[in-house]
Amino acid sequence: MAVTIYTATGCVRCKIAKKYLAQKGIEYTDLDIKAEGKDKFNRFYRERRKSVYRGPDGIEFPVYYDGQVVRQGLGVVVGHACSEKLAGFFGIGRLHGEWVDGIHLSQGDPEAMDELVEALGYLKGAGMKFEMDTDGRNPQVLERLLAEGLGEVMIMRLMGTKDMYAAQGYDAAEVEKTMNLVARFPEYRFELAVRPVVREDGAVEYLKPEEAGEIAAWLKEATGNNKHPFVLAPFDLKAAGDERFAELPQMETKDLLIYRSKARSSQVMAATA
């Protein structure tokens, strides 16, 4: 299938992606959107505008198109070029320069660890650093990355109390193992978005401050440490776009102070975002 890669003039990340495509023997047409590829890119953009991601800084480059799917960003393009099995691991990021983020370690297939290490190893060799995240699943992936020295920043996005994890079918022991591994990365933090919860009786409400305290206590118990970087953030209702939450007000940072207070009983460094 014919691959086209649209790049921006002087885009270092685009060059890194193209070099990897070449290494993998993937043939592609390289079009610079400011030079010879301007007209073709404009036409491509008009025809597939709704499939093209725009971040706060505009269109994310490189843009890779195989005739069916638009893929964007260095991590996504290199991940795809490495192996289709890496699809869940790489998403669009928000960082630029030497950083690659949007690497979701819980959302990929842990059987594809070798491929993940290959892709990240290539990017590291090209001078990139990684901000990765996990929700607690796939601790074996974190373990492997630590062994390989891959990953500068690790974020664990806490999904709820131990009971809430269990209700979603997560293995508590696996989540606790992840908590301990997260704390071994050069820089890390635990993040708790105060999210809406659908209770057993169908009621929809925000996570309670007491439950935030319970999560912080679980982290302390699992890791034997009460001084982890622990960040509370409002859940973005609009971005979630879930109709079940339509009646809830958008929470603001000031609403999190009571949550912070409860969390500090077990995590003394708890702070609001």
């Binding site: 921006a8 959107i33 505008r49 725009r54 800084d57 505009g58 269109i59 480059f61």
Partner: peptide, 12 residues
């Protein structure tokens, strides 16, 4: 009133 959108690679 808003009547349209103009976009470049960098901004909308």
């Amino acid at each position: 009133a808003e009547f349209g959108v103009v976009e470049s690679a960098k901004s909308t």
